[in-house]
Simulated assay, not measured.
Amino acid sequence: MSLPPPHPRRLGLTGSIGAGKSTVARLLRARGLTVLDADEVAREVTRDPAVLAEIEAAFPGVLRDGVLDRAALAAAAFADPARLAVLNAITHPRVRQRMLALEEAAAARGEGWIVQDVPLLLEGGLEGAMDAVLVVDAPLDLRIARVTARSGLTAEEVRARDARQMPAEEKRKRATFVLDNSGDLADLERQVDAALGALGMAPPATSAPPEESPSRS
């Protein structure tokens, strides 16, 4: 009987709103790493009719012609921690199940490391399941400017969302590596490569930078 493939090691990726986590995820993909995006998996999960039915029962009016109105759901859930806990109870177990299936597929391909891109990784107490954690950070004023430029949210709304997350300073303390995204893209790339090198994951010399958006977020 053949043994199952060894489980890939997990590199957790997280950061406060507007810090630039998505940019780092693109850089990691450009270096050949599989990045499992928890937000994308959550979007996939919430296309399941059974999940949509549970969400509609808990948050009436967030479906429009059978399609989830994500802005309406966010407004309803983020307004109250208790309501957000209800949404998380519906989606998080399914997201974890799907992420595990994707990890198993990476193991079958023989990958030694996978990246788990999870916005609330530390808030959810998931760092213990990671072999290393990358925290992307930048000054709050810069993060607010990035988010308001790309999303239409006001500065006050961004501050409110940021306040619901773990403070950036606490995230930095819990990180294996902190990536300071207050400089240019080349500086961020150097930090990513240094972290990968320290983990024994030196990227190929020919890796190409990703297509970059002006907001660097």
Rank of each mutant, 00 (worst) to 15 (best):
P60M: 12
L196H: 09
G128C: 11
A149D: 05
V35E: 03
L52C: 06
R98T: 12
A155C: 09
A205C: 10
A105C: 11
E127V: 09
A25F: 07
E127H: 13
T206I: 08
I90T: 09
G112R: 15
S151K: 13
R26W: 04
A208F: 10
D141G: 13
P209S: 02
P203M: 03
S22Q: 12
A85G: 02
R83G: 03
A89H: 10
A155D: 08
P93D: 00
E54A: 05
E111W: 11
L63H: 06
V136E: 01
V147D: 13
A79E: 06
L33W: 05
A208T: 15
L13S: 02
A205F: 11
W113Y: 04
P204M: 11
R70C: 07
G197F: 03
L36D: 13
D117K: 04
L142T: 15
S151G: 13
M201I: 14
G200Y: 11
G197N: 12
A108W: 08
E170W: 12
D137I: 13
G12A: 07
G197R: 13
D117T: 08
A105E: 09
V178N: 12
M1I: 14
L120S: 01
F78V: 08
P4M: 06
H92Q: 10
A89I: 00
V192E: 01
A75W: 07
P81A: 04
N181Y: 06
E40G: 01
E189V: 15
E40C: 07
E104K: 15
L196W: 03
D48A: 09
R9D: 04
F78A: 00
G110T: 08
P4R: 06
G112E: 07
A202F: 01
E212V: 03
L185Q: 02
A149N: 12
A19F: 06
A107N: 06
M99L: 15
Q165R: 15
A57M: 01
D184C: 00
G197K: 08
R146E: 12
I17G: 09
Q97D: 07
N88K: 02
R146I: 14
A101F: 12
A77P: 00
E54R: 09
V158Q: 04
R64I: 05
